[in-house]
Design a protein around this nucleic acid. Sequence first.
DNA 1: TATAAAAGTTAGACTAGTCTAACAAATATA
DNA 2: TATATTTGTTAGACTAGTCTAACTTTTATA
Lengths: 226, 226
Amino acid sequence: MLSHTEENYLKALLKLSFQNEEKPEAGTNEMAAYLGVKPATATDMLKKLKEKELVTYKKYGKILLTELGRAKGIAILRKHRLWETFLYEKLDFSWDEVHEVAEQLEHIQSPKLVNKLEEFLDFPEFDPHGDPIPRANGELPTVDKVLLTDVKAGESCQVVAVKDTSTVFLQYLEKLQVTIGTLVKVMEVVDFDGSMNIQIASSDPRNVSMKFAESLFVKKKTSVTV
Amino acid sequence: MLSHTEENYLKALLKLSFQNEEKPEAGTNEMAAYLGVKPATATDMLKKLKEKELVTYKKYGKILLTELGRAKGIAILRKHRLWETFLYEKLDFSWDEVHEVAEQLEHIQSPKLVNKLEEFLDFPEFDPHGDPIPRANGELPTVDKVLLTDVKAGESCQVVAVKDTSTVFLQYLEKLQVTIGTLVKVMEVVDFDGSMNIQIASSDPRNVSMKFAESLFVKKKTSVTV
DNA sequence: TATAAAAGTTAGACTAGTCTAACAAATATA
DNA sequence: TATATTTGTTAGACTAGTCTAACTTTTATA
C-alpha cells in the first residue's frame, strides 16, 4: 500500500516522462520543483521508492520508473482523469475546476470504484482536457494527432509533439513560448501562402508560416467553453 | 483546515452523541475504542481539538462537541452519507460495500463537490442504510420513527430508540443483543396476543410480546436486497 | 468509607514527511 | 583543463500521529 505522498511522486515522475518521451528520466531538482518540495526531501523519498522497487535510482544519477512504478503511476493517472471526466460531465464542473478536486479523488483506494466509475461514464477515452484516460489494463488510447496545418480556422488544439526537432526550430518554439501541452487556437488561415494567425495560450494572435505549421503535431480539442 | 485524523475524531464524537441523545458526552477510552487507537493517543488529540475550540474538554472530564465542532462533524457525516448514496444508487455498490469507500470519500475538500453531488442525486434524505443525510444547513431530516407494533409482517426496520427506559427492559434488550441500530425483521404477527416473531440481526427468529413491541421505536427500512 | 478497579494522563519513543544548512559530485564554461 | 556553477546528498531538526509503560484521578464496591 502506497501513501498519498508516494503516489504523488510516482505520478510526477510519470508526468515528467511524458514531457520528454525519448528521455523519460528525471532529476532530483526537477522532481522537487514539480512537487513543490525541497530537493533534500525528494532525495529521501526517492531512496524509499527505490527500496520498494518503484524507481531505479542511484546517487547523483537520473531517476526512472520501474515497470511496477509505471503501472502504479498509470493507475493513479487513470483515476485522476476518470474523476475529472465525472466532475465535468456529471457535476457541471468547469474545465479549470476539475483538476484540484481530482488531485484528491485520485488517491481513493477501491478497484471496484474506479472500474464502476469508468462504466458509469461509458468508457471515456479522453478527459475534459483532451488527455487520454489509461484503460484498466494500463494502455493509453492513442491520441489522434495531426499537423497544425490540418487544423481549420476557429478550431483549438494542443501541441503534443514536434515533427522537426532541429535546434533552430526548437529555439523558435521556445521564443514563442510553445511547449508540449501549449494550447493553440487557429484564428485565420491565409490561403495565399498557407500561413496562419494563431493564438498561443492566452496571448495575442500572431502569424506563423506554413513551414511552421507543418512541423508541429497537435491534437484537436473538443471545443470546451471555459 | 482539519486533518483527516481530526475529522475522524469529530465524526466519532458526533456518532457517539447520537447513540445517547440525552447524554451526548463521551469518555476518552470510549473515543479511543471507537477509533481503534490507544487512550493516550485520544487524550493528545482531544487537547488539540480543545485548542481549536472544537470540543469542550478538561482533564478527567467528559468530552462534548462545541457548536463549531458539531457543525464540522455534521458536514463530514453529510459527505459520508451522500457518497454512500452515490455508490449505491449510481455505481451498483452493495449495501455492505459502501461504507468503507465512503470513509475515504468523506474527507474530500470541495464545498462545490458535495452540493453538486447532492443535486445530482436529487436531494436524497436518507442514505442506503436508512440514516438521515444532513442538509447543507446542517439540519437532519427527521426519521419517521414508529413503534415496533406498527411494523407489519414481512417488513424490516431498524431500532432507533427505546420508549421504556427501565432497567429491566434495557437488560432484556441487552440479553437479546438489541441495541440502537439493530436490524429487525418482523416474520409474523400473532393476532391472538399481539406478540411477534422477529428476526434480530441475522440470528434465528424468536417471539416477543406485544408489550415489548410497544416499547421500542424503530424506523422502517426501504427493503434493501443485500 | 477505605480500597480496589476503571478511566484517564504523562513522559518518552518511534515513523513519515518535511525543512535548513553545510557539503560533495557532476557539468558547463572561461 | 581548471574553476565556477549547477545539481544532488547528508546531517540534524521539527511536526503530526501513534505507541508503551508508569502514574494519577475518579468511580464502584466490599
